[in-house]
Amino acid sequence: MSARPGRRPDPRVVALADDPGLQPQRTAQAWQRTGAVAATGALAVAFVGARLDLVVLGVAGAVLAVGVAVMTVWVIPAGRGDRPARLSAAVLLAGTAALSVLLAVLGAVAGVASLTRALGR
């Protein structure tokens, strides 16, 4: 399995090249599913931002949705057999968990903004 320039083979994928259990492929699919859910969550944040006239929230959600979609296509840590150097599974996992926290904070901000408006009515 040859890596593209600037990328390196995932040693686990190399070791399991002939795995009948298709572990690398299953892991790659798990990453793709997670990316799709994250992009959908970011779109939901963009929608609620637009709905509540919170421009910053709407733009942040839209940018995150596009960014996550691009990352999901560009960085697949298993299955394709290579990934950008410096990006170990741990780094990607930490980044994905941090993205989820960020979306949660944006969602909570939207909730508080909606709550403030509801109480002001």
Binding site: R12, G21, A44
Partner: peptide, 26 residues
Amino acid sequence: PRFSLANERTALAWVRTSLALVAGGV
């Protein structure tokens, strides 16, 4: 590597649970 990848998939399942909760809240 199979154990390591299984652990990674489990963590991703938890992250998806987290994202689903956030999307539900939004």
